[in-house]
């Protein structure tokens, strides 16, 4: 199976391709998934043309496969991301990122008077809207919307 849109970055034998990342969110995805701390071969492409996103980024990870819970963590910065699981140079599985019901330790609470901005507390949010992502802080109960979201 050929994926012509992915030809701009070299192919991998086994691993995961994360496609349709907004170009502006690439470095946050790297950070959330901790890709800067692993030794696997990783190829990044960014500012690629995309009809849907304008400019998109793509990540090819050799020898890496994600659990749903782990990959869904990037939903805050790459809600339209698509995953291709590659085995023997072939796409064997496709999946999309889903916004989880709860977000733990990824975003900062927008409320400057929130305890999580004063003490070392892991932030925790209930996802109250998945379309235009809105998070309700478990502590101060204020809403952080997509526009004001800061990724830790």
């Amino acid at each position: 199976m050929k994926e012509p849109k992915q030809l701009s970055v070299s192919a991998i034998e086994n691993g995961t391709v994360i496609d349709h990342i907004p170009a502006s969110g690439l470095f946050k995805v790297i950070q959330i998934l901790g890709l800067d701390k692993i030794n696997n071969q990783i190829t990044f492409g960014t500012n690629l043309e995309s009809k849907k996103l304008g400019r998109k980024a793509i990540i090819k990870l050799a020898g890496i496969f994600f659990e749903d819970d782990d990959i869904n963590r990037i939903a805050l910065v790459a809600p339209d991301a698509k995953l291709n699981i590659i085995r023997g140079y072939e796409v064997v599985e496709k999946s999309v990122v889903r916004v989880p019901d709860e977000i733990i330790g990824i975003a900062r609470c927008v409320n400057p008077k929130c305890i999580t901005n004063f003490e070392s507390v892991t932030t925790r949010f209930k996802v109250v809207s998945k379309k235009n992502v809105a998070l309700k802080c478990h502590y101060c109960e204020k809403i952080t919307d997509q526009e004001h979201m800061v990724i830790l």
Binding site: C109, I115, T116, F118, E141
Partner: peptide, 9 residues
């Protein structure tokens, strides 16, 4: 406490 969410914590 003056800080929001402090009681939950």
């Amino acid at each position: 406490h003056p800080i929001e969410g402090s009681a939950r914590l």
